[in-house]
Design a protein around this nucleic acid. Structure first.
Lengths: 141, 141
DNA sequence: AAGCGAATGTTGACATGTCAACACGGGTCG
DNA sequence: CGACCCGTGTTGACATGTCAACATTCGCTT
């Protein structure tokens, strides 16, 4: 009759809650300043970290997204001249355009500031170390 | 010209990546078994934790969602007879229906199992303790 | 070379989320 | 009382994400 929410599920659910609680204000901050949505920023950042260009499937894997989602989003971003797509043996390569770099330059400081206020400052150094360790572990498992 | 991604932003971005990496398989597991979407499950769980019924605005706050989103979702869930809405002084109260409880009973064990495999088992006890502490801290800040 | 299969992307229909505008119902204060 | 104000919830238009079906291309096998 009445299911209980047990340990692993409970850990997941509270983690999710905390994550969303942090995400919401950060997204609000970031989207307030620029005309980038949060997913768009993720794409640009990932692209930037990859050196300015990346294969579309790599991008999708990096972001943990579905091909379809990325495809649709890139179509829109291409129309706004943030990125271009070029055919390459075995697929498609996406590259940052100037407008994309400019948008990044505008958004990153805002993101840095917001993330510091809503995440870093809420934790003490030990927590931060632990969080980094947890993240690393989860990403390599 | 070329922005760097600094410490707080970098922490946030990697955290997000790890979170998504954990979320994806859990969502896949949970939605595979039942006919509940992940947001729907969140609503049911929150409702259940609240004792089976809750004011709509409380629910929204608990979930960290927009009123609008919850309203739309509840409309769909009401149509599927998972929950009901009743007018109450000062707003609307949402209550679990039998179908909702049944769906929970089906989904929670799946969630528990999936969360254990994809989250708990990937961490050692120390990480888990740290994560719980971090979550608590973030939710009360 | 020809055929096949797997990986990659795209497309269109549909589900879901977001935003701005509106509607309603209590408080509160003149 | 009556005129506001504010918190709550709904609605409809639009943006975004998801899913299944389809193209294309590359590698592998024969």
């Amino acid at each position: 009759m009445s299911t209980r929410v047990e340990s692993a599920a409970e850990l997941w659910l509270t983690w999710k809650r905390a994550f969303e609680a942090v995400r919401a204000p950060i997204v609000a901050d970031v989207t307030a300043g620029s005309d980038l949505s949060e997913p768009e920023l993720s794409v640009l950042v990932t692209l930037f970290e990859a050196g300015g260009a990346a294969r579309q499937n790599v991008l999708a894997a990096e972001l943990g997204w579905d091909r379809t989602r990325l495809s649709h989003l890139l179509t829109r971003m291409e129309a706004r001249e943030y990125v271009t797509r070029g055919k390459v043996t075995g697929g498609v390569e996406v590259a940052l355009l100037t407008r994309g770099r400019d948008a990044l330059d505008t958004s990153i400081p805002t993101l840095e500031d917001s993330a510091r206020r809503h995440l870093l400052d809420a934790l003490d150094p030990e927590d931060v170390r632990a969080l980094r360790r947890i993240v690393r572990r989860l990403l390599t498992s």
